[in-house]
Design a binder for these strands. Structure first.
Lengths: 148, 148
DNA sequence: ATGACTGCAAACTCTTTGCACAACA
DNA sequence: TGTTGTGCAAAGAGTTTGCAGTCAT
């Protein structure tokens, strides 16, 4: 694991600070999430990681994703159609999900309103993150749907 | 299926209009979702339905929930922690999900901003529904967390 | 040296599918 | 009466668990 990039350094610092071990798998999985196009499933992470670190197993991927989520370096996005993807973008942003093909895309410049967090807090709930998912048809699927 | 309530009538009308059959299972499953406390899992729906209609099967519950979702009478809410629940409230409203105990609650008076739908539409995406989920700790879990 | 982490295999949960029977229209 | 819908059983996908060996510290 040479060529310690800035991305890696952040992870290593977080791990060291908590007395957790720095392993090649954790480095590579974190890199995969940060560098690849976003919204990766566990399977996609494994595929990406396997190029660099053959033999890596799916249980390790899941364990590491859970760890990274706990460190706040990765977000889990659940769409409700059964798909769960992991996103390395921490800043609040919405996602669009196509009902037909399942494609997930970022929606830039759309944060969940503070209003919602405040309202949640008023009920005694302690919010830490808001996730906004927009359902519908992506441009490609909408085009074919019209034709039918 | 006597005692046709207003809830039932809406379902029957929708089914008839599309040439679909009106079956006891569909009536009872729809009633369960509308009358019970909200956010039911498929298993919970089955349990509730089984009191009235013993022998009802899980595949039928899933098929009917999918049908009702297609009719717009029920919403599927995916939280990302693996739980998928069904909600009979159609009006836009947010949900809070507890990271610790998994409890799901409604957040009144919080619709996803039109802004988001407009922005999604600007990308060619055809939105039909926005789902807003707030992650954090529910009041009960937050209280015990502080204590530790 | 020692204890945490990984890999393998298997188990587990949730959901869907195939097919024969039943029942709505 | 003709299909559509249901129930049963089994398959399928995705994720988690147990355990032995390995590796970071």
């Amino acid at each position: 694991m040479a060529a310690t990039s800035q991305i890696d350094q952040q992870l290593v610092a977080e791990l060291r600070e908590r007395g957790l071990r720095v392993t090649p798998q954790r480095i590579v999985i974190h890199r995969a999430l940060c560098s690849q196009s976003r919204h990766m499933t566990a399977e996609q992470v494994l595929a990406s990681v396997s190029d660099v670190l053959p033999g890596t197993s799916l249980p390790t991927v899941y364990a590491t994703l859970e760890l990274l989520e706990g460190l706040g370096l990765v977000r889990r996005v659940g769409t409700g159609n059964g798909a769960v993807v992991f996103d390395s973008r921490i800043e609040p942003h919405a996602h669009t999900v196509c009902r037909r093909c399942g494609a997930i895309a970022d929606l830039e410049g759309t944060a969940a309103p503070d209003d919602v967090l405040n309202r949640a807090g008023a009920t005694g709930f302690v919010p830490d993150h808001a996730q906004l998912v927009v359902w519908g048809l992506c441009a490609a699927c909408a085009a074919t749907a019209v034709r039918s």
